[in-house]
Amino acid sequence: MKKTISVILIVVAFLIIYFLQSNFFTWFNIAGIMPNLFVILIVFVGLFAGKKLGLILGLIFGTCLDFFIGRYIGISGILLGTIGLLAEYCDKNFSKDSKITIILMVIVSTALFEIGIYVFSLIRNSIDAEILPFIKILVIEIIYNILISIIIYPLIHKLGYALENTFKTKTIMTRYF
């Protein structure tokens, strides 16, 4: 029951994020660049609820995004699923109590997601790569995601452990970062 409620709350968070991305962040942006809160959400789920849920929700949310607005169905799902999967491995090697761990994970995940989407788009559409403009956008997006992660870190920390208690029965001894 608790697990079902948690999943429903994550889905609600996804919808709120979708609303923010398509409305609020279209004007509250840094030099026209929006953050990517979906990556932060999946990192959060993978890290605290485990790779199984991270992978499944990553796949579902990504596919939903592709259906809503994306051009190719599946690519966002695969990448978000991968992020959910990776988050669990980071959880085993680093401490979630460290803000730096969360920030590093957000940096790596955002880069992985956006590079993946861009490379796929380059191959699929046979277009010329614009490396420098792409890096500029990616760097601003990562900075934006870092700032948001710092702002919501207390929330991530609190809700994360509640989620962990619901989904993870075994206590994992972490090696501190």
Partner: peptide, 12 residues
């Protein structure tokens, strides 16, 4: 609806 990505521009 409008695109939520920084790298593409599609509308619904």
């Amino acid at each position: 609806n409008r695109d939520i990505s920084n790298y593409s521009d599609t509308i619904v």
